[in-house]
Design a protein around this nucleic acid. Structure first.
Lengths: 240, 240
DNA sequence: CGCGCACTTGACAGAGGTCAATCTCCGTGG
DNA sequence: CCACGGAGATTGACCTCTGTCAAGTGCGCG
């Protein structure tokens, strides 16, 4: 559905990505600002890193196609998935303060991003509309991470997996795909890392949901049969 | 140690708070900008809310004296402590995007804050130095929350409590107090909510640390005897 | 064709949540 | 001044949940 496009400098107004990528995040009157912000495309092959924790921030990236995992790493080697960026998501905000990325982003499939030069981003901050948009984006990021923190801190196993499925469902709906039937690009281990469980527990919980008739799982193909039930399950916080 | 000061409009350059509050967050050349940002003081009595989730954002607050807990609430009534703001910390950033606070902030003791009118904050964003500072602050917030998320997702009990003590220790040191002997203003339940454990487990873990000779606990008075041991304990992630 | 990776499923043990009793402070009121 | 009551904290007993280890299946890719 996305016509081939030379990997040269591009403009957001030409972008055909469903949902409008950044455009959804910026008010109409600031759209013209995107004209001035010239950027390049970049392909990232499955399993390859878009950037790594500690790298100097030279670009913000907007996911154009494909999907990623954003992981945080500890000195001792363990890591945790913090997010599964999808088309339209902006990456690299966590590095805007320190000048170095605070997370490592890895492609879950062959993907494509728009690379916005950081100087350009900073230059556009002279415009109030752009400032407002960036403020909104960073605020949203804080809220998003906080909400996930809450999930990890006070939710039971079922709630965690249910929440994950609902987040995915919402993400698919927002991008114009079916919210009840989709393909997951991440492994059970990555899901487990994201919601704070082991891959075995994730697998068992998915099976449990299936036995209850809430979903249908075939490998990574998910069909949600009872969205309401999942929503209910995602609320209580049994702890433990 | 802090001289009495009328609760009228004030200037940051007059501020005598140790560590310099906002001043620590802004580069010297932008200090003059703080002159223009007139603000008022506000007292918050123990147990009272500085602001509540959903309230329209009219101020950013800088903690001047005392301590708070920042809690996130779920529709079902459960809540979780997301942070323990202390003097010098900035509150309300999570609401800058949506225009409504995303958390509820409650005083753990009689406290005092500086209330920065949000219009003034936005006005000052015209200055590049101020922008940079705000970017840094929001970026730090994202990183801070992400790091805590990682703790909640992949750390064992000992690591969680050890990490909490170390955070507190660092906060005390940064404010010029002893990093090894201090008074905690929060209950065991609030600690537990913060690190994702029950109050009983927090209590048991503290006792355990004491038996190992790492700390000395008397009610809320903490003496850290083996900082290095705590640092070691905060690393491994036994999960569980 | 078969090796390997992702996933599923089972058995088991340990970590930590739950329930409950007790203790220590404090503040309050008789 | 002391008795009482309540909130916070500690400790113990119990039991569930889920992480760990291990075996087995299905699928894809070389």
């Amino acid at each position: 559905v996305i016509p081939f496009r030379a990997r040269t400098q591009s403009r957001c107004t030409d972008c055909r990505v469903d949902g409008g990528c950044l455009r959804a995040n910026f008010p109409p009157q600031s759209l013209s600002l995107l004209h001035d912000l010239e950027f390049t495309r970049r392909r990232v092959m499955q399993g390859h890193a878009l950037f790594m924790e500690g790298d100097p921030v030279r670009f913000l990236y907007a996911v154009r196609q494909g999907s990623f995992k954003s992981v945080l790493m500890l000195p001792d080697g363990r890591d945790q998935v913090a997010r599964f960026p999808m088309p339209g998501d902006l990456l690299g905000l966590d590095g805007m303060g320190r000048g170095a990325y605070a997370s490592t982003v890895i492609a879950l499939e062959d993907s494509e991003v728009c690379a916005l030069p950081i100087q350009g981003v900073h230059r556009q901050l002279n415009h109030a509309a752009w400032r407002e948009a960036m403020c909104r984006l960073m605020g949203q990021e804080i809220v998003r991470v906080s909400r996930h923190m809450l999930l990890l801190g006070s939710a039971g196993t079922d709630a965690r997996v249910a929440m994950f499925l609902l987040e995915l469902s919402d993400a698919m709906r927002a991008r114009g795909y079916s919210p009840t039937e989709f393909h997951m690009r991440m492994t059970r281990a990555e899901i487990g890392s994201y919601v704070g469980l082991t891959l075995e527990t994730v697998s068992r919980t998915l099976s449990s949901f299936q036995q209850r008739g809430w979903i249908c799982v075939h490998k990574r193909h998910i069909t949600i049969l009872a969205l309401a039930a999942l929503r209910t399950a995602s609320e209580p916080g049994h702890h433990g």
